[in-house]
Amino acid sequence: MYQGDEPEELEKLVHADARKARLKYLLVPIIIYSLILVVPAPFAFEYGFPYRSDVPTILFIVGVLLFFVAAWWDFGAKKVLNESVRIGVKITNDDISYMEKQGFSLMMMYFGIASLFIATAFAVFYI
């Protein structure tokens, strides 16, 4: 570490780190998803909250919002770029295309989750 090189074993750790970080990004919408599904349930049973009509509406709206978020948000890529200028890490075209790839895959995952929201909305509504 002190010699300034990042040894090869570190490479694996770095990959594991990236996986963990990706999970962090995905966790937020998944938690929202479960909250929307779970929190109203007791109210539906106890106080007759119109679960079947209202929860799908909420799910649908949040799902659409999520599509927009995924499409517009850069997932912090810009911040990383700024930071690299500050630290003095040179960014090559290769790095940029890697960032784009990573950004794209995160976006697709968000799209997936957003679709899950909407699919669930329909499922709850019709079933």
Binding site: A21, G76, V80
Partner: peptide, 11 residues
């Protein structure tokens, strides 16, 4: 940061 570990290439 989390963003850093996603967007910076492994090597």
């Amino acid at each position: 940061s989390a963003a850093g570990s996603i967007f910076v290439q492994a090597g």
